[in-house]
Amino acid sequence: MRTRLLIVLAIIFQLAMFVSPGEAQDFKLDAKGLSQMRFPSPEGVAAKKYLGLSDAPEFTLGQIGSEAVLVMIFSMYCPVCQKDAPVVNQLYQMIESDPNLRSKVRFIGIGTGNTPYEVEVFQKKFSIKFPLIPDDDFSIQKISSHDIRTPTFALARKKAGNQLEILKIKVGEIREAREFFDSISRLLVSR
């Protein structure tokens, strides 16, 4: 009897290891704080059009003209972000070529601790097609439960009054665009 109990406990312990990749699981962004953050509007006409923004110098994520926003928090300096950039581009292409998803979600990058110049370097170097916005003074850090590990991805949906509801957070690189694409699809489309 005791052996059986030990075996069961051992298996439970082993299974528990599967679902505890450190602090990544506990990382949270404050939805209200994220809704209130003001970002400098992108300069380009195409970027403004993609995000559905007016000509105002600043914007909030809730003002973006789609049902949901996929936010990539990155840094030009982060080697993991650099390595993941082609996968991120692939994900963007998948979203844009999906008839169900393309109208529902807009992809945006926030370069935390990056100046406009540094964000532009990243944009050009990796031919990122969606808008990248600088967050020079690490503002997004202030609404995070832990130190932000870049890249971190957050999928947020708009509610009444341009408030955001966070549907999904992924700490660390995407690695597999298809898998990530499917997970956003499930959250936004098949309901």
Binding site: T3, R4, I7, V8, A10, I11, Q14, L15, M17, F18, P21, G22, A24, V80, R149, V171, G172, E173
Partner: peptide, 26 residues
Amino acid sequence: RKSMLRLTPLVIVLALAVNAFAEDFK
């Protein structure tokens, strides 16, 4: 019990692999 015992090494290996994976970006 026998089948669990047989599976245990596999589960351990899998669990360690997953942890190593998590460790990678930790």
